[in-house]
Design a protein around this nucleic acid. Structure first.
Lengths: 337, 337
DNA sequence: CTCTAAAGTGTAACCGATTCCATTTTGTTC
DNA sequence: GAACAAAATGGAATCGGTTACACTTTAGAG
């Protein structure tokens, strides 16, 4: 088990210089006689030679690695995104370094540091922090940033891939309004996040359009981490005038929220209509099957990878890709009694 | 937006040599006068200097990176595993490169190649291929391999972290036998995988112990990818003498299987008792809540990372860590009618 | 059979860190 | 204040590739 072969070993074995080996390695870098190429390839084979990525990256920046910075892979939405990003990247010969932030600004900063040290070609991220500075620093290192789902305000030159959060919240709300609901509970992420804010805004705008008053006691802006979805749901159900419908627009809290409803005596959809933002396989299997707002993860992933790689060495303006969310009506929503 | 600072820039700014800067960077490498250290740190700060990982790795192998090679991050079991591994690794200052194989041997080989080129310190993997050669090659490059969940036979010097698959299948089977079931459908992974085989063996052994004949028509060994769980389940239900209980020991096919049952007229647990291998939040929310065999992902992840890092530069014998699975009885299993 | 352009190959300088070893500075002890 | 050990620092090699440039061959044109 001697030391792994280097380019010099290969060169020696093939009786050529390292420059030639390098040219064989990187097709198109320069001419190599067919016969020579054969010999070199044979030598590489015999020595089971693999060029070291570290050495390559040292010379020219690593266009070959992407950072993927997610809040929480346990959340099915992010998991699907991760899967899709890895596949998409793979098909282009790019590797993905996965990091998670646990929605913690400090962890996020650390991760950005690491990514900066690696000089990754691009970063695809669902940002947590409001701290634009770290992001800006990464951008100044010529790293492409693509925000997915959420974004950080004040960060210039970052791309964005997202559904139209405002509109999707409206759509969900209007569906309920059409069914006659007027008291609608709305659970979403913190107002410090762009998704939390946009969805809440959309919801409220929708109510306003129909001339309905906005009742603040029906709004719940809760963190993504933890289990507050249960409490939030519980407190909505135990209001003096409980809502006749709830929209859970906080993907991470859907399970907790549903669990709380299931524990209560409230029946869906008879007593309560329910819409959740999520698209995992179990929402359909739940009884009753849940009406959902689906984010097309595969599409989002492919756009993200596109942007992250495309803009490498490119100085064009940052772009925003808005993807249409799919509203799927199933059995958890019904006319108000 | 000039070029990022290098160690030489820092050295120049602080009025010292690069050797000193390096020593400041890697505490404990050598003595540095406190005053000097201050100056260097200040210079690093002002230039917002980040040492390049590629350069570091070039000199001394990258103990600082782990490869995580999973079949499919979409599967909640793997997603949880990924999350836990990333967190565990993070807490030790180690980064994780995530790759997925889609249960495809060719993709797996590619990934192993990439990992070899990176000379990662260790690889944590749920292997797909039977192809021991690629794995062995990686090991010969001094890479630690830790198999999780499944393993590849014939690969020496690889660690293993797994539940006792044989035993967990027995436990599930015995639970059903105790409830009086004698015709039990058993859906698991391909017999080419160690988990598929061990679980099937355990199940059959359990039957044999009670003197029950093994009916091959009740066994379904199906791939992890795709949707065959639905067909397998359907075909079990439509047997002349359908089983009164089904164990889905193929984590990836649980949702498909459950969907098929839900579509049928069969009622759980009245007509059919159901046990699934999985521990995602929705199994409890399903109606009826599902009796499950839970794999403790966090524990598995922490052991895996432990092993992957611990054995770096270590020549001790490969180790196997067996973790106890948790059997949780809920409402989907009942006495046979 | 020259002449010249193109093809093929090799040399050596990088990339940005780490690290061995030699050298200089500092601090103790008689 | 000389002698010597310990602490602090710097010079230069090294890791394993890529690549600019110079050099040698080959081939086609005149």
């Amino acid at each position: 088990m001697s030391k792994p072969a280097t380019i010099r070993d290969v060169a020696a074995a093939a009786g050529v210089s390292i420059a030639v080996v390098s040219r064989v390695l990187n097709e198109g870098t320069g001419p190599v006689a067919p016969a020579t190429r054969q010999r070199v390839m044979k030598a590489m084979e015999e020595l089971s030679y693999r060029p070291r990525t570290a050495a390559r990256e040292l010379k020219s920046g690593p266009t070959t690695t992407l950072g993927l910075l997610l809040a929480d892979v346990t959340n099915p939405f992010f998991a699907r995104l991760a899967d899709a990003v890895v596949r998409e990247a793979r098909s282009r010969g790019v590797q993905v370094i996965l990091m998670t932030t646990q929605e913690d600004a400090r962890l996020e900063e650390d991760a950005l540091d690491t990514l900066a040290a690696r000089r990754v070609g691009g970063v695809i991220a669902t940002p947590t922090s409001t701290n634009a500075k770290s992001w800006q620093r990464l951008i100044e290192l010529d790293t492409n940033i693509v925000f997915v789902d959420r974004y950080v305000e004040g960060v210039s030159r970052a791309d964005l891939v997202s559904i139209d959060n405002d509109r999707s919240a409206r759509e969900a709300t209007e569906h309920l309004l059409d069914l006659g609901h007027t008291r609608i509970g709305f659970i979403s992420g913190p107002l410090s996040t762009t998704t939390g804010r946009a969805r809440t805004d959309g919801h409220l705008a929708s109510l306003a359009e129909r001339g309905l008053p906005a009742d603040p006691s029906l709004l719940r802006n809760i963190p993504f981490r933890g289990d507050q979805g249960a409490d939030a749901t519980g407190s909505l159900l135990s209001l003096d005038q409980p809502p006749t419908a709830i929209i859970v627009a906080n993907t991470a809290q859907v399970a907790a929220s549903v669990r709380r409803i299931r524990q209560s005596s409230v029946r869906v959809p008879d007593d309560l209509s329910l819409i959740v933002f999520d698209d995992n396989p179990w929402t359909e299997l739940y009884t009753p099957s849940l009406t959902i707002m689906r984010q097309p993860t595969v599409l989002m992933a492919s756009h993200s990878v596109d942007l992250a790689l495309q803009r490498i060495g490119d100085d064009s303006d940052p772009r925003t890709v808005v993807i249409e969310a799919e509203f799927v009506v199933r059995s958890s929503t019904g006319a108000v009694r």
